[in-house]
Amino acid sequence: KRLSEREFDPDIHCGVIDLDTKKPCTRSLTCKTHSLTQRRAVQGRRKRFDVLLAEHKNKTR
């Protein structure tokens, strides 16, 4: 699936709103397109961004 077609989940996706499409970014939490500050500011996550990021990195090892 293309990035734009993915169902957005704030707990596994970057989530920064794309200015062109007005939709949240569906790249992983480790997205290189958006800064850490931008990704931390995303609302609606179950846990703090840093906790989710650490969990994500542990899963992908």
Rank of each mutant, 00 (worst) to 15 (best):
Lys32Tyr: 05
Thr26His: 06
Phe8Ala: 05
Phe49His: 03
Leu19Lys: 14
Val16Ile: 02
Cys31Ser: 00
Glu7Asn: 13
Arg27Gln: 15
Leu19Pro: 13
Gln43Arg: 08
Val42Ile: 06
Val42Ser: 01
Lys57Ile: 15
Ile12Gln: 14
Lys23Pro: 04
Lys32Gly: 14
Pro24Gly: 06
Arg39Met: 06
Thr26Pro: 06
Gly44Trp: 03
Phe49Asp: 04
Ser28Gln: 12
Thr21Gly: 08
Thr30Trp: 08
Arg39Cys: 01
Asp20Val: 09
Asp18Gly: 08
Lys23Cys: 13
Arg40Lys: 10
Ser28Cys: 12
His34Val: 00
Pro10Cys: 06
His56Ala: 11
Arg45Phe: 02
Gln43Phe: 05
Thr60Glu: 15
Lys59Gly: 14
Lys23Met: 13
Lys59Trp: 07
Glu55His: 03
Val16Gly: 01
Leu36Glu: 12
Ser35Gly: 06
Arg46Ser: 14
Lys57Met: 14
Lys59Gln: 13
Leu52Gln: 04
Glu5Leu: 12
Val51Leu: 09
Gln38His: 05
Ser4Asn: 08
Arg48Ile: 05
Arg2Asp: 12
Thr21Tyr: 07
Arg45Asp: 02
Asn58Phe: 05
Leu52Met: 12
Ile17Glu: 12
Ala41Ser: 11
Lys32Pro: 10
Leu53Cys: 06
Val42Gly: 01
Ser35Met: 04
Ala41Thr: 08
Asn58Leu: 12
Lys57Pro: 04
Asp9Cys: 15
Leu36Arg: 04
Val51Gln: 15
Lys32Met: 07
Pro10Phe: 10
Ser35Val: 03
Pro10Trp: 07
Thr21Asn: 09
Cys25Tyr: 00
Cys14Tyr: 00
Ser35Asp: 09
Asp18Lys: 07
Arg45Pro: 02
Arg48Cys: 12
Ala54Asn: 09
Thr37Trp: 08
Gly44Thr: 04
Asp50Phe: 02
Thr60Ile: 07
Thr26Asn: 08
Asn58Met: 14
His56Phe: 11
Ile17Phe: 03
Lys59Pro: 14
Glu55Trp: 04
Thr37Gln: 13
Arg61Pro: 08
Pro24Tyr: 04
Ile12Cys: 15
Lys47Ser: 09
Asp9His: 09
Phe49Leu: 13
Thr21Gln: 07
Ala54Lys: 10
Asp9Ile: 09
Asp50Thr: 04
Cys25Pro: 01
Thr21Ser: 14
Cys14Ser: 00
Lys47Val: 11
Gln38Asn: 04
Ser28Ile: 07
Ile17Tyr: 10
Lys22Gly: 12
Arg46Phe: 05
Arg6Glu: 13
Arg46Leu: 09
Val16Gln: 02
Asp50Cys: 04
Arg27Leu: 13
Ala54Phe: 11
Lys32Trp: 04
Cys25Trp: 00
Arg46Ile: 06
Thr30Pro: 02
Cys14Ile: 00
Cys31Asp: 00
Lys57Thr: 07
Ala54Gly: 08
Ala41Cys: 07
Lys57Gly: 14
Asn58Val: 09
Leu53Asn: 02
Arg46Asn: 08
Lys57Asp: 15
Arg45Gln: 03
Ser4Pro: 08
Arg48Pro: 14
His56Lys: 11
Leu3Arg: 06
Arg2Ala: 14
Asp11Cys: 05
Cys31Trp: 00
Thr60Cys: 08
Leu52His: 04
Arg46Cys: 10
Val16Asn: 00
Arg2Asn: 15
Pro10Thr: 06
Arg6Pro: 15
Ile17Asp: 02
Asp11Asn: 15
Gln38Arg: 05
Arg48Ser: 15
Lys23Trp: 10
Glu5Ala: 09
Thr21His: 13
Phe8Lys: 01
Ala54Met: 12
Cys14His: 00
Lys57Trp: 13
Gly44Asn: 05
Arg27Phe: 13
Arg39Lys: 13
Thr21Arg: 06
Lys59Tyr: 05
Arg39Phe: 00
Thr33His: 10
Lys47Trp: 04
Val16Ser: 03
Thr37Lys: 14
Gly44Leu: 03
Glu55Asn: 06
His34Ala: 00
Asp20Leu: 06
Arg6Asn: 08
Leu29Thr: 02
Ser4Asp: 14
Leu36Val: 12
Arg61Val: 14
Lys32Ile: 10
Glu7Leu: 09
Gln43Met: 10
Pro10Tyr: 08
Asp20Gly: 11
Ala41Leu: 11
Thr30His: 05
Leu19Phe: 09
Ala41Pro: 01
Leu52Ser: 04
Phe8Glu: 02
Leu19Cys: 13
Asp9Glu: 08
Thr30Ala: 09
Lys59Arg: 14
Pro24Ser: 05
His13Asp: 05
Phe8Asp: 01
Glu5Gly: 09
His56Glu: 14
Val51Asp: 09
Arg27Thr: 08
Cys31Gly: 00
Arg46His: 04
Gln38Ile: 01
His34Glu: 00
Thr37Glu: 15
Gln43Pro: 08
Gly44Asp: 05
Val16Arg: 00
Cys14Arg: 01
Leu29Phe: 06
Phe49Ser: 03
Leu3Thr: 11
His13Tyr: 06
Lys22Tyr: 11
Phe8Tyr: 12
Thr60Val: 08
Ile12Asp: 09
Gln43Glu: 13
Asn58Trp: 07
Lys32Asn: 08
Leu19His: 09
Arg6Ala: 15
Glu55Ile: 04
Arg6Leu: 15
Glu7Met: 15
Cys31Leu: 00
Arg27Glu: 14
Arg39Thr: 01
Cys14Met: 01
Lys57Arg: 14
Leu29Trp: 02
Lys47Ala: 13
Leu36His: 10
Asp18Ile: 13
Lys32Ala: 10
Thr37Val: 08
Leu53Arg: 02
Leu52Asp: 03
Arg45Tyr: 01
Leu3His: 08
Thr60Pro: 14
Asp9Lys: 07
Arg27Asp: 13
Ala54Arg: 11
Leu52Val: 04
Val51Ile: 11
Gly15Cys: 05
Thr37Pro: 11
Thr30Asn: 07
Cys14Phe: 00
Val42Ala: 02
Lys59Thr: 12
Val16Leu: 01
Lys57Ala: 13
Glu5Asn: 11
Pro24Lys: 12
Pro24Glu: 09
Arg2Trp: 04
Lys23His: 07
Leu3Asn: 10
Thr30Glu: 13
Gln43Ala: 14
Gln43Gly: 10
Glu7Ala: 13
Gly15Trp: 02
Ser28Tyr: 08
Thr33Lys: 11
Arg6Lys: 14
Ser35Arg: 03
Gly15Leu: 03
Arg39Trp: 01
Ile17Pro: 12
Leu29Asn: 01
Glu55Ala: 06
Asn58Asp: 11
Asp11Met: 10
Leu53Ser: 03
Glu5Met: 11
His34Lys: 00
Leu52Phe: 02
Arg61Glu: 15
Thr26Asp: 06
Lys23Ala: 11
Val42Phe: 02
Asp9Ala: 05
Val51Phe: 07
Gln38Lys: 06
Arg39Ser: 01
Arg2Ile: 15
Cys25Ser: 00
Asn58Glu: 15
Arg27Tyr: 11
Asp18Ala: 06
Ala41Ile: 05
Lys32Leu: 10
Thr37Met: 14
His56Cys: 08
Lys59Val: 15
Glu7Val: 09
Ser35Phe: 01
Ala54Thr: 12
Gly15Ile: 00
Gln38Met: 09
Thr21Phe: 06
Arg27Lys: 13
Glu55Phe: 03
Arg27Ala: 12
Asp11Thr: 07
Phe8Leu: 06
Arg40Ala: 06
Val51Ala: 11
Glu7Thr: 11
Pro24Cys: 05
Asp18Thr: 13
Phe8Cys: 03
Gly15Val: 01
Asp18Trp: 05
Lys47Ile: 08
Leu29Glu: 00
Cys14Trp: 00
Thr30Leu: 10
Ile12Tyr: 12
His13Gln: 06
Gly44His: 02
Cys14Asp: 01
Ile12Lys: 11
Asp20Ile: 07
Lys23Arg: 13
Arg40Ser: 11
Ile17Gly: 05
Ser35Ile: 05
Leu52Asn: 02
Arg2Pro: 07
Lys57Phe: 10
Leu36Tyr: 09
Leu19Val: 09
Lys59Cys: 15
Lys23Ser: 14
Lys22Asn: 14
Leu29Met: 05
Thr33Asn: 08
Asp11Ala: 06
Arg40Pro: 01
Thr21Pro: 09
Cys14Glu: 00
Leu52Ala: 07
Ala54Gln: 12
Asp11Pro: 01
Arg40Trp: 06
Ser28Met: 09
His13Lys: 02
Arg45Ile: 00
His56Arg: 09
Pro10Leu: 11
Cys31Thr: 00
Asp11Phe: 03
Thr26Trp: 06
Cys25Glu: 01
Asp50Ile: 02
Leu29Arg: 01
Phe49Thr: 03
Ser28His: 10
Leu36Asn: 05
Cys31Ala: 00
Cys14Asn: 00
His34Phe: 00
Glu5Ile: 08
Gly15Ala: 08
Arg61Ala: 12
Ala54Leu: 09
Leu19Tyr: 08
Lys22Thr: 12
Cys25Met: 01
Ser28Pro: 15
Thr37Phe: 14
Leu36Trp: 07
Asp50Ala: 04
His13Ser: 05
Pro24Leu: 05
